[in-house]
Design a protein around this nucleic acid. Sequence first.
DNA 1: GCATGTAATAATGCATGCATTAATGCCGTG
DNA 2: CACGGCATTAATGCATGCATTATTACATGC
Lengths: 225, 225
Amino acid sequence: MATTGGKTKSNSVIAVERLRELIFSGELPAGSDHLESELATRLGMSRTPVREAALTLEGQGLLQVRARKGVRILPISIKDMEEIYDVLSALESMAAANAAGQGYGANDLKELEKTITDMEAGLAAENREAWADADDRFHTELVRLGGNSRVMAIVARMVDQVRRAKSVTLHMRPLPLQSNRDHQQVVEAIKSGDAARARQIHAEHRAAAKDMLINLLRQNRLHML
Amino acid sequence: MATTGGKTKSNSVIAVERLRELIFSGELPAGSDHLESELATRLGMSRTPVREAALTLEGQGLLQVRARKGVRILPISIKDMEEIYDVLSALESMAAANAAGQGYGANDLKELEKTITDMEAGLAAENREAWADADDRFHTELVRLGGNSRVMAIVARMVDQVRRAKSVTLHMRPLPLQSNRDHQQVVEAIKSGDAARARQIHAEHRAAAKDMLINLLRQNRLHML
DNA sequence: GCATGTAATAATGCATGCATTAATGCCGTG
DNA sequence: CACGGCATTAATGCATGCATTATTACATGC
């Protein structure tokens, strides 16, 4: 039995998971429409659980349910990216500040530091996928250390929405050298309990990431992803 | 025909609206469980649209769908309130800063300023409901001026979750005199284009509101609402 | 008397079919 | 030839019934 839990998952939950995979992998491309019955056939179940899954994913901002036109996979515009990165900036910097205020010891921050060494390893090997994976884990862990479950949930949703765009730009962007220095400084601020500094550094980190990404998209005329 | 739109609403949408009303009015009390079939009978429709509405509201954090136990109306703990007010603080202060950066003129801020005069009128008449209503409109309008649709959506959800708690404490709290001064200062910072100041003032405003509310709940032993 | 296993029960989860309704194409008219 | 109304079509929205499964109560054995 896997650690994910061997509990018998309902078809509705399976549909959510499968649809997410199909969206992230690009098999259901951004902007495309799909009838409930098509998706039901594709997933080997009836329309009911597919419909429920569609409603769930609509609440997560990944698609839109439109009467008689099927579900539309929502594309991400540059404006969307700006919005999302602003939300991430505000919430993650607060999480960093809160993490700094918790008095975490070296042991509590082990996981966070491991993501940094993984990023460095990824950078050294010029393995962008490995770096990106570790970067995701850094941000997830940082938010977790902030101790606000709602921030965790919101951030996860926002990250989902930019997932496609990130994978597209991953190979276009320069190697993120500054990024790693930022991460290291955030950890140090948390260690020393300097909430204001943790917040400040992380906000600048996110602002820089936003600018880099937006410019990249504009330069490459990627107005919709 | 009302401005809300006379379009034939689906039962599923009606169910969402009615359930929200029932939750906010306390007819479905926090912590209570309700079978899908009960709710369906109550709303005069079949289980299907009720079930869909329940999934939607679960995504909004208002209730929880539990197999074989019906839907549970989620109570709000003090920890929840802290989380929510921290999210509101982070996102609304960013909205205030962004609003200050938009170069809004007197005309753009008319709606915002009207909410302040309404609050003052409510205060003068010691009409707490009128004050609270204007206060809600102030925050909604402030976030709208920030120009980030995701922030608007997230803030609206958070506000929904604390709605019951707010109405309980509305008559316990002292008259919010400082609150109005804060609002006025935020508007002035936005007018003068001072983003940092708008952010700062509003963050302090939300922090003070949070402390006041949390203390009120603790003093009155209201650990769950 | 308590614990364990089993059977009855009841609520969800899902499939199916029909009614509703918006979109599309066609026909008739100006 | 273009425009407008009507019929056709097709996809959703919803109700219904059944299968699945967790829970509870009861009986039996220790």
